[in-house]
Structure formats: structure tokens, C-alpha cells
Write a protein that binds this DNA or RNA. Structure first.
Lengths: 245, 245
DNA sequence: CGCCCCCTCGCTATTTCTGGGGAGTTAGAT
DNA sequence: ATCTAACTCCCCAGAAATAGCGAGGGGGCG
């Protein structure tokens, strides 16, 4: 119940971050997150990868019962923490989010009933290919105590969250970007124009070439990217960072 | 030429981060970035918001001449730093990127000629709605010195980069396009299927709905995203992180 | 209760894209 | 010196996407 570290008394995290850097699996992260919770003296710390399609990846100190309830009830789509962090870059205190909707208030009541705590602080994390994750701390205490705690520890928390996400990305399979055949400059130009909404005719005009020539580029790029159609090719080019929009 | 701070001798950045937090405009960031460069004793530090359309937003210590040359020559589309960071979450040493293409090597030669330095370290930054930025340091020194420098300062750099991006997002709210009308679940499913190469008919079949209904979703998503056609809509949805492929 | 958004379906006409075919020049690489 | 790869141009027919008009049921919120 007592926050271990208030202002001017922040724990040294050096050793912990080093161990975080050398973690080799989700189990290590689980151990570290529990240790981190104890060091900070908060009720819960959770890292979770947020996927629109429900599958979860992460670790933390919430009861499994609560996690399952959260998923079953579809709270992910309602949670102001998720929605708010999705629109933000900087960490945010849960109090500052929009709890006005009925579903959100129901979620909060439910969470408190399950011992999550009345206070919370979440750090949004974003990786390549639209990856999105949250690193959250929650606790039961007064507003003043919580503010004191978050203000004095936010920088360390940003760093810890960053390293957690780095490890999660590292452990997650299927993120291996296949060695893509490089696109030629013209192909890149063509794909970029299509990605910003130009039709083939407009793109050809912009590049001062015939539409047929443009088409050759697009087709060539499509084959190089192993794409089934133009839209697919643009999507692949974007997520591989071949083009930037 | 001499790196001010090698291992075990990192500068204290507390005061600087506090001033960063209270910065009120790009001018303040420019002053801070120059001070940061001097504290670290590196040749250059640059923060820049990356988008394809040439307009740039950011601050740093590069010569204006080099910045203009970079833009004129279209180096943005060739730069392995940009491409590499786009696919990564963690900071990266420029040496570890793929410089095999001719255009990339030409860029590197050119950069060295313009005094950028032979070493570099970049931190990818991602905000809401697919915002993407880089925080980079460059210097002229040996591989060993640079590795020593980056290893001992990487955590501070991650934090500083984070705060720079936070401020940039704060100063340029208009950059984050439209309060992003959220797509409905079905719209997201439809767009995702198109992004992975399905035709309308296939996507409709996959979702077990009529092709017409699918078309309604796509049109609706297109309007919400302010896109000119399906390809454009998929590109926007991807770069804003609305869908993930 | 009314409003708005989400989900579902139908029809028609026009424009655009896709996927085959072939062909010439230039520049860089083997 | 040869060869590959990039760049440029052309025709055609079928498939797909776009734009416009509709309709009705369900759920949440004020």
C-alpha cells in the first residue's frame, strides 16, 4: 500500500535495466516486472502488446482472472487507457483520460473491484509496422501521492518501458522483414505517387512519362514486392519502409 | 573532434531535460540541441520529422547547405538511416545499417564531404497517427570511440529524443492529421484484407458478406481517412497505424 | 423516443486497372 | 565486349474499381 519511492528517493534502476537488456524470454520479463513492482512498491505493473484482434502478448502482475475478464468483456475496445494512449505520445495519468462514457465508468468500477487500484499511469509504445503496446502501473492511493510518485519516476519509467518493448519485439517471431529486392528510383517514385492517392494517369503525368511506362514500373515493383495487386504492393512497400508517406 | 564524454563520464542531463520540458517553441529546441551537442562534444545532433513530401520540420546543427542538398538530391528516399530506423524500434549505429546500394554509398560519401562525420547514431521515434521522426547524432572518430560513446550515453539519448519528439508533437498539432475518425471494426477488417492483397470479391467472401457491403465499408473508410482511392486509403490506414499488416 | 452510427443488401453505368503481347536506347557490371 | 537492368514507348481485351441511386434492422446515448 505504501509507495516505496517518492520524490527525491527514486530507486536506482541501473542493474535492472542491464538485466532487462540481457533478458532472453518472456519468463525473464515476468520476473523483472515483478521485481520492478516490488522496488517501486506499487500494486501492479503490466506490459502488453495491444492488438486490435484480441490476441495478447505481454506480462504483468494482474490476476489472470482479471485479464480474462478484461478480454471476455471486450474492455479493450472501451478502455480509455488504450484509446487515450493511442492518441498520445507522452505517458499519461489515468485521471487525465476521458472516463465520461458509460462503458468506461463500468470498466473502472470493475477494475477497482478486482483490485487494480484507483490510480494508474500508462506509457504508450510504438514500434515498426504499426506495433503498439502499453506499459502501465497502477496503485491504490491518494491523488497527491500518485502525482508525487509519477513525477519523480516518469523518466525511469519511460526508459524501462522502452526496453520492455524492445525485448517484446525481439522475442516476437514473424517480424522478420524478408530481404526485399530493391526498387529502382522510378519504381519508388511511381509507388509513392500511388500511395498518396494519384491515379496511374496522374502519376504518369507528374513524372512526365506515358501511362504505359508508369504501368511497367508499377508492375515491376509489384513483382519485386511479391504483391498480388497494386494496393498490396503499396502496402508492402510502406510497411517495409521502401517508400515513406 | 574529441568526444566529451566516454564511458563512466556521462554528462548530467537533468537540468537540460527540465528545460526541454518547459520549451515553448522551435527556437528553444534549437538552442537546446546546440547546447546538447556541446555537452556531448559531438559534431552534429539533429531532430527531424520524417515525411516523404520534402517539407521538413525539425532542428539541428547541420549546415543549411547540406540540408538543402539532401532534400534536392532526394536522399530521403535512399538514406539507409531513414529506411533502417523505419524498421527498427531500438536506436541504431549507422555502421550497422545496409550501405550496400550504390545510392547509399554515394550519400555517405557526400555526407562525409559536407562534414557530417563518419559515425552516426539514430533513434527512431513514433507518435500517434503514424508520425515518424529521427533523433540523430553524428561525429568524426574511430569505431571504438563511437561505440564507447554510444554505449555509455544511449539511455540518456533515448530520453532526450523522447522529449524532443514530445515537444515537436506539442508544437505542431496540425501535423497529426485530422482527429482521426476511428474506423469501425468491419471497416478495419475490410481494409486489412485489401492491404494483404485480397480483391474486393475475395475480401467479401472471407468476411462472408456481399461484395456490395464490403464496398460500402471500403468507401466509408476511404472517406473517413480522407483518401482519394482505395490504394490511398490503405496507405493512410497503414501509416496512421489504423491497420497492421 | 429520436438520432446517429454500424451492419447488411441490390442495381446500373462509367472509368480505371490488370495482364498478356512486343521493342528500342542507355548505362553499369562481369 | 557482352550482358543485365533500368528506362521509355505502344496495342488490346477482360477484370476490377468508382460513383450514384436506393433500402432496412439493430444498438447505444441523450
Amino acid at each position: 500500500m505504501a509507495l516505496g519511492f517518492l520524490s527525491g528517493n527514486a530507486p536506482r534502476l541501473d542493474g535492472l535495466i542491464e538485466r532487462l537488456e540481457s533478458a532472453e524470454g518472456l519468463e525473464d520479463l515476468q520476473i523483472l516486472i515483478e521485481e520492478l513492482r516490488d522496488r517501486y512498491g506499487v500494486d501492479h505493473i503490466v506490459y502488453h502488446w495491444v492488438n486490435s484482434n484480441g490476441e495478447q502478448y505481454g506480462c504483468g502482475t494482474y490476476d489472470l482472472e482479471w485479464v480474462n475478464r478484461y478480454l471476455d468483456k471486450g474492455y479493450l475496445r472501451v478502455d480509455p487507457v488504450v484509446a487515450g494512449c493511442y492518441q498520445r505520445f507522452h505517458p499519461v495519468d489515468w485521471k487525465r483520460l476521458d472516463w465520461s462514457s458509460k462503458a468506461a465508468r463500468a470498466l473502472m468500477q470493475d477494475a477497482i473491484a478486482y483490485g487494480i487500484g484507483n490510480q494508474g499511469y500508462s506509457i504508450p509504445l510504438r514500434g515498426p509496422n504499426g506495433q503498439f503496446a502499453l506499459f502501465s502501473l497502477s496503485h491504490n492511493c491518494s491523488d497527491e501521492e500518485w502525482e508525487d510518485f509519477t513525477i519523480s519516476n516518469r523518466r525511469d519509467l519511460i526508459l524501462v518501458a522502452h526496453y520492455f518493448n524492445q525485448k517484446a519485439l525481439e522475442f516476437e517471431p514473424g517480424r522478420t522483414p524478408d530481404p526485399a529486392q530493391p526498387l529502382s528510383p522510378r519504381e519508388i517514385e511511381a509507388m509513392t505517387l500511388l500511395a498518396v492517392g494519384y491515379s496511374r494517369a496522374q502519376a504518369a503525368d507528374t513524372l512526365s512519362i506515358s501511362e504505359h511506362t508508369l504501368r511497367v514500373y508499377v508492375e515491376s515493383a509489384r513483382h519485386k514486392l511479391g504483391a498480388l495487386n497494386t494496393t498490396h504492393a503499396v502496402a508492402r512497400a510502406l510497411s517495409r519502409g521502401v517508400i515513406v508517406v
